[in-house]
Amino acid sequence: MAIPATAPTQTGLIEVTGFELAYDTIDGAVIAVSDADLVVNPGEFVSIIGPSGCGKSTLLNAVAGFLKPTAGQVTVDGEAVKGPSADRGMVFQQYSLFPWKTVRENVEFGLKMRGMGRSERAVAARTLLGLAGLSAFENHYPDRLSGGMKQRVGIVRALATGPKVLLLDEPFGALDAQTRVIMQQILTNLWQRLGISVLFVTHDIDEAIFLSDRIYVMTARPGCIKAEVTVPLPRPRDAALQLSPEFIRLRADLGALIREESLKAMGGELNEDALKGLAVNLNGSNLAQVV
């Protein structure tokens, strides 16, 4: 069976040390991430949040093996990452299902690449699709699915090969709020069942708190780690948790941290005082005059 054992894993340790990545452009090197360090322990669920453009995707793509750091290193279980591999499953923000494959064929893809036989991989794919509540859609082509279903298939596809770590880049960013909450619960379930390490990128604070054991907050570009927050909330977690005082306090703290960086990211001219001034000016006149 393709589903990894549920016993606590000892694999899936991600270590990023002294990480720097610069994009070569005509204007010179754009330093996207500079001097970032982070660790994801085996079986841990870790999120990265930060303002837009701070280098979250860059960092995640380097862990996946699509980008090479210009300095520092990325290792998984002590081995340097050299390129993409089935050891590191990835879920992308854009729906990335193969349109020419049915749902089940999509999920089977990684197993097929590994040379698993036809009937064996069909069994494995069906089991996983069942866990994600997608059994009824196994023969559909992706364009018949809703966004939430597509992303569930994307997650299941990434998990099918039994990777050591799962990397997710704002996977629920395009979904509506209700669907997103359900997707978070499904992801939590799968994660707990498979005992795999997860590195999750998001800009949604509630999502990060709800899902994670730990959260890294990144600074504006060039991004580095600004803060590391442990989420002390017990599991299993449910929607009611969002009303708990701890949750609210964490959200406020994280919100303040990110707001500071977001303002920086939006250009040096904006700060808290300038924003208040803007509000006063707008209050004094009606919209027609402003426009």
Binding site: A64, G65, F66, G83, P84, S85, A86, R88, G89, M90, F92, Q94, S96, F98, W100, F109, G110, M113, R114, R157, A158, T161
Partner: peptide, 26 residues
């Protein structure tokens, strides 16, 4: 779509397999 190529690569597809399974149907 470049993201499909990436998806295939991190599911363990070799260059040849990517050609056959992604570029060709695409």
């Amino acid at each position: 779509d470049e993201v499909l190529v990436r998806a295939a690569r991190c599911l363990g597809a070799s260059e040849r397999a990517t050609f056959r399974e992604v570029y060709f149907p695409a």
